[in-house]
Simulated scan of single mutants.
Amino acid sequence: MKKYFLIGVFLIIALMIYSMFSEKNIHDLEGGFKEVAYTRNENNTGPVVRIYAFTVEDTLWNNISQHAELLPHTKYGTTEAYYFLAKGKYPSEISLNEKRFDPQFKKYCIAKSVTDGQGRTTLNRFPFRE
C-alpha cells in the first residue's frame, strides 16, 4: 500500500513540474518583443500601475494580443503597454504622468494594451492616429 502511495505522490509531483515548464510564456512568442522602457508607481497600499514600452519586429496582432495578456497585472491595478516597431523610433523612458512619453513618438506607436484590475485586456491598434 505504501508503495502505491509513493508512486502516486511521485506522479503528481512529475505532472506539476511538467505543467510548470510547459506553460506558454512571453519568451515563447514570435515577434521579437523587447522591453525598452518600464515604470511603476511605488504605492504599495493602493492600486499598482505598471507601464511598459516594447518594440516588435512585425505587426502580428495575434502575438501582440497574447503578449499583452501575459504581462503581469495586479488586482485593482492597471497594466499599460505601448508597442512600437523595432525599425522605427520609440521612447527610451516612460513616466506615470498623463503624457506617458514624449509626444513625438505617438505617431510610431502601433498598439496600446490596457489590462484592468479584473484581468480584462483591451488592445487598440494605432491608438494615436487621427
Rank of each mutant, 00 (worst) to 15 (best):
V36I: 11
H27C: 11
G32L: 02
R40S: 14
E23G: 12
N43V: 04
N44W: 10
F33H: 03
I17R: 07
M20H: 15
A37Q: 03
I17P: 04
T45L: 14
E23P: 05
E30T: 12
S22L: 06
I13C: 14
M20Y: 12
G32Y: 04
V36M: 06
L15Q: 14
V49P: 04
A37L: 00
D28L: 06
N41T: 01
L15N: 07
F33A: 04
I13V: 12
Y18R: 09
L29G: 01
T39W: 02
T39M: 02
G32E: 03
M20C: 13
S19I: 05
N25E: 15
I17F: 09
K34I: 14
S22Q: 09
E42M: 09
Y38E: 01
D28F: 07
L29K: 03
V49M: 13
L29P: 04
T45K: 07
T45V: 10
D28V: 08
P47L: 07
I13N: 05
S19E: 13
R40G: 05
E42C: 04
V36W: 04
R40Y: 00
S22C: 06
A37C: 02
H27A: 12
R40M: 12
L15R: 10
P47R: 08
G46Q: 08
F33M: 05
I26H: 09
N41W: 00
Y18P: 03
L15C: 15
E30A: 10
E23L: 11
P47V: 01
T39Q: 00
N41P: 02
M16K: 12
E23I: 14
S19H: 07
K24I: 14
T45D: 12
S22V: 09
N41L: 01
H27I: 14
N41D: 05
I26Q: 13
V49Q: 12
P47S: 11
N41A: 01
E30W: 04
T45H: 13
E35M: 09
N43T: 04
E30H: 10
K34N: 11
G46I: 03
S22W: 05
E35K: 07
I17N: 07
I26W: 11
N25M: 12
F33G: 01
F33L: 05
I26G: 08
A37G: 02
V36K: 07
N25A: 14
S22D: 08
K34H: 14
I13Q: 06
T45N: 15
E23A: 12
V36Q: 04
A14I: 02
V48K: 14
T39R: 00
A14G: 06
M20N: 13
E30V: 07
I26V: 13
E23C: 06
H27L: 15
K34A: 12
S22I: 12
G32R: 02
K24P: 06
Y18E: 08
R40V: 08
L15E: 08
M20W: 13
N44S: 09
M20E: 11
G46V: 03
K24F: 08
E30I: 06
F21K: 15
V49L: 11
V49I: 15
S19L: 07
A37E: 01
R40F: 00
F21D: 10
G46K: 09
K34T: 15
F21A: 07
E23T: 15
A37S: 05
E30M: 09
